[in-house]
């Protein structure tokens, strides 16, 4: 082996070592979550810190699924997150398309306003929102949460979608319009199919944001019936005097829909659909 190949091999080894280190660092808490959820409560304190318990059990999962309010929280979270993700993506697609393609009066200010909404710490907005929502009966309601999440996610999602539309040549919809399509038809039949990766990314991003949101869920909801999963996790703390086994089991279960969701959309996340549209 020559010095150059050795150097190359060394370089790549380093390269992968650093990536592996990072991945391990990022995934370790997840591993720990999973490990604790499988550890029998008795062993949790008696065995000290070990990479793997001497005995594992599924009883935490059983308890969480059958004897707690967790299924209710879970369902609420699914309703809120899916609705929010769909609503936001629909609105952001339209708005992002308009920002990408049209020149209109007030565009500059509109974009500026949208950016400003992203600059406030959300805490500041809780009490006004609470005051508005109470008389409308939107506190203690999933609908109220969906409205808040949708409103807060639309600006960023719009910019995200805009950048995806910007990446699709304008010629394509112009060709479609000359071919005889209405602008909306061109959008639906030509542009939208090419934006699927962007739509998937936006759906995924908003879904995750809504799924893990705690602040508003905590402030606007007090009934167990309408609680979402992150709030539910907190009730584990008080009710079961920090039962780590059950709490982590609930946490692992809560990861499932997010994983499932990304699994479903991952094939759209793969870019490169537009290849071959214009001269390559």
């Amino acid at each position: 082996m020559s010095a150059a190949t050795l150097k190359r091999a060394g370089y790549w080894t380093m390269h992968y070592a650093i990536i592996a280190l990072y991945v391990a660092f990022a995934l370790f808490p997840l591993y720990w979550l999973f490990k604790v959820s499988l550890t029998p409560t008795k062993l949790l304190y008696s065995e000290g810190v070990r990479m793997w318990p001497s005995r594992t059990t599924w009883e935490n999962y059983g308890f969480v699924l059958t004897n707690s309010d967790f299924p209710r929280f879970f369902l609420n979270s699914v309703i809120v997150s899916v609705s929010t993700a769909v609503l936001v993506t629909v609105v952001a697609s339209g708005a992002g398309y308009a920002l990408s393609r049209f020149r209109f009066r007030g565009k500059f200010w509109l974009v500026g306003l949208m950016l400003i909404t992203q600059m406030f710490p959300l805490v500041m907005l809780i009490s006004p929102i609470f005051r508005i929502f109470t008389p409308l009966g939107l506190t203690d309601s999933l609908l109220g949460l969906i409205i808040v999440y949708t409103a807060f996610n639309i600006p960023f999602a719009t910019f995200l979608m805009q950048s995806f539309f910007d990446g699709i040549p304008k010629d394509l919809e112009e060709a479609a319009m000359i071919d005889g399509a209405h602008r909306f038809t061109a959008f639906r039949q030509i542009i939208l199919p090419l934006t699927l990766p962007g739509i998937a990314a936006t759906l995924g991003f908003v879904f995750t944001a809504a799924w893990s949101e705690l602040l508003f869920a905590l402030m606007l909801i007090s009934k167990t019936d309408a609680s979402t999963f992150p709030v539910g996790l907190l009730t584990f703390v008080s009710k079961f005097s920090v039962d780590f086994g059950q709490m982590t089991a609930a946490g692992v279960l809560a990861l499932i829909p997010a994983c499932l969701f990304f699994f479903l959309i991952q094939r759209y996340l793969v870019r490169g659909l537009t290849a071959g549209a214009v001269k390559g």
Partner: peptide
């Protein structure tokens, strides 16, 4: 219209 970029639907 024939575009310089061809603008084929990919």
């Amino acid at each position: 219209m024939v575009f310089q970029s061809y603008a084929l639907y990919p």
